[in-house]
Each structure stands twice: as C-alpha cells, then as structure tokens.
C-alpha cells in the first residue's frame, strides 16, 4: 500500500484512542471532590514543587546516547554493503570501532557512565 499506509495508521490510532476516550466520557458522569484532583503521593499532600531541576545523572546518559546513536546511524549503510565490500569493510569498521571505543573508554574513565 506504500507510504499512504502511514496516514491510515495515524488516523486509525487517533480514531481508536479518541473513540475509546469519548465512549468513556459519555458512559459515566464525572464526580468531583476536593481531594480527587490532587497528585497521588500515597495519600499525603505533596510538599514543595514537582517541576524542579533534576539531577544531571539522567541527562548525561542522553548526551552519551546522542553521540553513540549518531555512530550507529553511520553503521546502517555500512552494514548493508559490508558483505559485498569485503575486507575493506572489516578494516574500516575495526578502525571505526577503535575510535568509538577510545571515546567510550574516555567517558568511562571520566566517570560519565557512573550513576550519580
């Protein structure tokens, strides 16, 4: 069916979720009370702000990931032709991995991979 299928899928997803939510909206009468809308924190009112700056630990992995994922994208076209390119491909990838691994080791040594 080709690329048109993507449109079908997106519409299907929206329709499915939309209809499901709408049905549940129609089926019941919402009730309200004071506590209902409070964020759940084991039944205790939450203290302090929730939307705060978070520890850098989480983001560091995103950064490292970014670097590695870009390398991974390079690998896809290489992988397709690797078999036909033969030894050149292997040598190339060894060099590529060597550099990548050095970067990895550097990150490891710097403690970027240790959770803080």
């Amino acid at each position: 069916m080709g690329a048109a299928s993507l449109i079908v899928l997106i519409i299907a997803a929206i329709a499915f979720s939309g209809i499901a939510i709408l049905i549940s909206k129609f089926v019941l009468k919402p009730t309200t009370n004071k506590q209902k809308g409070e964020p759940y924190e084991c039944g205790i009112p939450t203290q302090g702000k929730t939307w705060i700056q978070l520890n850098v630990g989480y983001y560091l992995f995103a950064l490292i990931f970014l670097i590695f994922d870009v390398e991974l994208v390079f690998l896809y076209p290489w992988a397709v032709v690797a078999k036909s390119a033969g030894w050149i491909a292997l040598i190339e990838i060894v060099i590529f991995f060597f550099i990548l691994f050095m970067g990895f080791l550097y990150a490891h040594k710097k403690g970027a991979l240790k959770w803080m």
Partner: peptide, 13 residues
Amino acid sequence: KLMVKEGMTPNGA
C-alpha cells in the same frame, strides 16, 4: 471496566 472509569486529569497537571 476501564471504559466506565473516569479518565481524570489532576489539578496541577
């Protein structure tokens, strides 16, 4: 059961 449950949005969200 899930359909007839209220899908609520919390106040501060």
